[in-house]
Simulated assay, not measured.
Amino acid sequence: MGEARQTRGLSDAAGRHSAGRLAARSALSRFWRDDSGATAVELGIMVAMVALAVVATMSAFSGGMNKVFDKISTAVTGT
């Protein structure tokens, strides 16, 4: 009798190995290596940080701006 050789997976009718776990493993490794969406995420984070800075600045100066607009309103209605 001949030697028994170890097979990686069951073969289909055409003699190819089945996709099985190897295909899932390669799909997962491709997914983890794919960085095509990273640029969009980084851009979104930067836009959010700029928007947060603008909102913080506007809220910090809103009290002073109200006084300026009140003075302007008083000056315009007084003349």
Rank of each mutant, 00 (worst) to 15 (best):
1 M>H: 09
1 M>L: 08
1 M>Q: 12
2 G>E: 12
2 G>H: 06
3 E>G: 06
3 E>M: 02
3 E>S: 07
4 A>L: 10
4 A>G: 13
5 R>E: 13
7 T>Q: 10
8 R>T: 14
8 R>M: 08
9 G>D: 15
10 L>D: 13
10 L>G: 07
13 A>P: 07
13 A>K: 11
14 A>H: 06
14 A>S: 15
14 A>T: 15
14 A>F: 09
15 G>C: 00
16 R>K: 14
17 H>E: 14
17 H>Q: 15
17 H>T: 15
18 S>K: 07
18 S>R: 09
18 S>F: 01
19 A>I: 13
20 G>V: 00
21 R>G: 04
22 L>A: 09
23 A>R: 02
23 A>P: 00
23 A>L: 05
24 A>P: 00
25 R>L: 14
25 R>D: 08
27 A>L: 12
27 A>E: 11
28 L>E: 04
28 L>P: 00
29 S>H: 10
29 S>N: 09
30 R>L: 13
31 F>Q: 10
31 F>Y: 13
31 F>A: 15
31 F>E: 12
31 F>K: 10
31 F>M: 10
33 R>K: 13
33 R>H: 11
35 D>W: 03
35 D>G: 14
36 S>D: 12
37 G>D: 06
37 G>Q: 08
39 T>V: 06
40 A>L: 15
41 V>Y: 12
41 V>G: 10
42 E>L: 15
43 L>M: 14
43 L>Q: 13
43 L>C: 08
44 G>Q: 09
44 G>W: 00
44 G>I: 00
45 I>R: 14
46 M>S: 15
46 M>L: 12
47 V>Q: 13
47 V>D: 14
47 V>C: 11
48 A>P: 15
49 M>K: 12
50 V>W: 05
50 V>M: 08
50 V>K: 11
51 A>M: 10
51 A>L: 11
52 L>K: 02
52 L>N: 11
52 L>Y: 04
54 V>P: 03
54 V>Q: 09
55 V>K: 10
55 V>H: 09
55 V>E: 12
56 A>W: 02
56 A>L: 09
59 S>D: 06
60 A>H: 13
61 F>P: 12
61 F>G: 10
61 F>D: 04
61 F>V: 04
62 S>M: 04
63 G>K: 01
63 G>D: 03
64 G>E: 05
64 G>Q: 08
65 M>Q: 04
65 M>Y: 04
67 K>C: 05
68 V>A: 07
68 V>Y: 02
68 V>T: 02
69 F>I: 12
69 F>C: 07
69 F>D: 05
69 F>Q: 08
70 D>R: 01
71 K>T: 01
71 K>Y: 04
72 I>E: 03
72 I>L: 09
72 I>Y: 06
73 S>E: 06
73 S>Q: 03
74 T>Y: 07
76 V>W: 01
76 V>E: 03
78 G>F: 00
78 G>H: 01
78 G>M: 02
78 G>N: 04
78 G>S: 09
79 T>C: 09
79 T>Y: 06
